[in-house]
Design a protein around this nucleic acid. Sequence first.
DNA 1: TTGAAAGCGCTACCAG
DNA 2: CTGGTAGCGCTTTCAA
Lengths: 352, 352
Amino acid sequence: MVTISDVAKDAGVSVSTVSYVLSGKRPISATTRERVERSISSLGYHPQASARALASNRSSALALVVPLRRDVIVPVIMQFASGVVVTARTHDHDVLLMTQDEGAGGLQRVSGSGLVDALIVMDVEAQDPRVEVLRGLRQPAVLIGLPDDPRGLGCVDLDFAAAGRVLARHLAEHGHRALALLGPSPAVYDRGTSFATRFLRGYQQAAEEEGVRAVAHACEPSFAGVAAWLDRVESELPGLSALVVHNEAALAPLLSVLSARGRRVPEDLSVVALCPADVAVSFPVPLSAVEIPAATIGELAVEMVLDQLEGRAQPSVRLLPPEFHERASCGPAPRPATPRPRRSRATARMGS
Amino acid sequence: MVTISDVAKDAGVSVSTVSYVLSGKRPISATTRERVERSISSLGYHPQASARALASNRSSALALVVPLRRDVIVPVIMQFASGVVVTARTHDHDVLLMTQDEGAGGLQRVSGSGLVDALIVMDVEAQDPRVEVLRGLRQPAVLIGLPDDPRGLGCVDLDFAAAGRVLARHLAEHGHRALALLGPSPAVYDRGTSFATRFLRGYQQAAEEEGVRAVAHACEPSFAGVAAWLDRVESELPGLSALVVHNEAALAPLLSVLSARGRRVPEDLSVVALCPADVAVSFPVPLSAVEIPAATIGELAVEMVLDQLEGRAQPSVRLLPPEFHERASCGPAPRPATPRPRRSRATARMGS
DNA sequence: TTGAAAGCGCTACCAG
DNA sequence: CTGGTAGCGCTTTCAA
């Protein structure tokens, strides 16, 4: 194994000079630098990560904690993780992959052992017990999600409230006067996952502002679940002409069930969703949808956490604006709109 | 920060004793061990990873290289990665996440810098340039996939040939005499990805043995691609009554197109696939399918690579047997089988 | 602009 | 069964 002193010897300089050539932390004459670099590549020298970390007290690694639950949208996780890894590499950092099930203890372990310089934690819930632990660590952290009390921690996420607003408003502007939100499975609400609630609030707020009737219910992502959900909202809301879907896994069953019942999209029923682009275009009629900018969130998380690490910035909360993509699943309301009241009461609630 | 000598002082023993308590590499009296452990937890001591790695020349980390291409099946990758991380943790190892795009240089970097003790590389192609690089590294490696020349490297993968055989044979046993294989997109074959070819060979072999007619064509996973594929095989193979799908992304379009054309599954056409269980059950008619045991492959990869690291085993190739799950998409051939020839010529080829 | 050398915290060898 | 201690390969301060 070739070490820094092998390089120093070969180049006829001191060890510290080689180190400074590598780090750029002090000026080096062009000729010296060149000699050193020649030796480095001719010897095939690679600085040893552990020695560097020990001496500098920096690991050049970030921890990334990903969820494993079955109700997460796997492709979104992957996009996000890719964004993190690629961005980390452009800042000369590596990524240590951890799973949710290591829990708070895992965070303490990697932090305490100095394995990483900073942490990025996905899928953080409103009352996540890990939040308090993260606040107590030596290393900075950025969360994907928005806990109730984010003090001291960076947060990045889609602005779910704005996403809910955008979708509801879009339907209202197409003349729809009665909307239904197909929400995530009940388990997601039970867990107190804040994004579901934020989306719902945005949806309700826009519906109210636009003066349209709107219901919302959680939905199990299966054929049976979707069928039951449909029965319920159709009986609950006569004149229903548009759906907002915040449940990726329910999309396929939903569209199957609709087609089986002879309800055409968008002629009979408009559908808009929050889902990745590739999912949106995987149906016979491409879905108008808001996307989760997962890769961007990943990049941003890395940049925020490194800014905190270098003292360039304080922890802050960043909610990214939703991007709506119009495709083919949203049309005008089928029946001429009934005379629009100046200010109708919006009804929106999230039942079980 | 609390160090090993703080613990030694607190417990009234030497640092080496603390070290040996931690590693268990030499006998320690019960009383000493207890005192040391008490000090460790009362001081909240965490051994520093970098110092340990420097002194022991072991990082206790594995590199995991995941693909980023759009034609990979993301959930399978995730299952696999989870299996790797969880298993690595049970063996006291962490996982460094790398992306495909770091290429051979990335492998050399993490290897040369001693960041990891071993490497696991996913999605390895028949003529993958990384194979030669991996062979030259100091650390052992295990590949997911099967390159043409795997000498010196461990390999784990599904036995794709057996999977192709199982599916074709299953259909033949249900009386189907004319089969079509809907393969991955042409890009996959062009890339020389060995799993596609292995699956195809197994399918062809079983068809020949069973004396059934069988065609095979690559297919773009889109509505247009699937429709064109269907037109082609139906005109090419009169009496076609069963499909084998080796293209997860094409499943949804395929089933939509079939339903739009009034072809019922399984009454008019039987369909079997190679896909994850959750995908198989996400359609109106649950698909009989072979699954990729991704989590198992991940576990196995970790165990194999650690066995190599510890000198407990030589690099070897392990192909896991396919597991077929009967669901609802496969029925008997619709028309009574034509008199079965003793040994008919099977036709199977993979056109563009 | 460069060199010398003191650690960083741990492991594992050598002694006892 | 336990202690002392020489490194592991690098960074960074102090000195020149």
